[in-house]
């Protein structure tokens, strides 16, 4: 299961941009939001987003299926929906295992 660990937030990513690129911290924060927004918009259009050396985000469609309320046992239809999946690149997979 998920381990409890410290969170890295937008603020810290924006700070990395600020250090690396030398933009003001407010502009760095704005650009971080822009990057996430452009990725979100592409996914909204149903596009796959491939970020080399990081991973791929893809949108898949699920058909309607019958689910069940686990508490009451009542059958309910689960509406068709689009779901997002992330496939990490080989590089990222190796990185989290401490390999180069």
């Amino acid at each position: 299961m998920e381990e409890v660990s410290r969170n890295v937030t937008r603020a810290e990513l924006a700070e990395a941009v600020y250090h690396e690129v030398g933009l003001s911290s407010s502009e760095s924060a704005k650009l971080l939001d822009q990057v996430l927004e452009e990725v979100s918009k592409a996914l909204e259009r149903g596009e796959t987003v491939k970020l080399s050396s990081f991973g791929t985000f893809s949108v898949r469609s699920k058909k309607q299926r019958i689910g069940r309320n686990p508490k009451t046992g009542v059958e309910v239809p689960i509406t068709p929906r689009r779901i997002l999946s992330f496939h990490p690149s080989q590089i990222l997979k190796k990185q989290v295992n401490g390999e180069k």
């Binding site: 660990s5 969170n7 890295v8 810290e12 990513l13 590089i91 990222l92 990185q95």
Partner: peptide, 12 residues
């Protein structure tokens, strides 16, 4: 940066 946070076991 997300990748290096993950490699330190952090959550982003």
């Amino acid at each position: 940066e997300i990748g290096s946070a993950l490699s330190e076991g952090l959550r982003v």
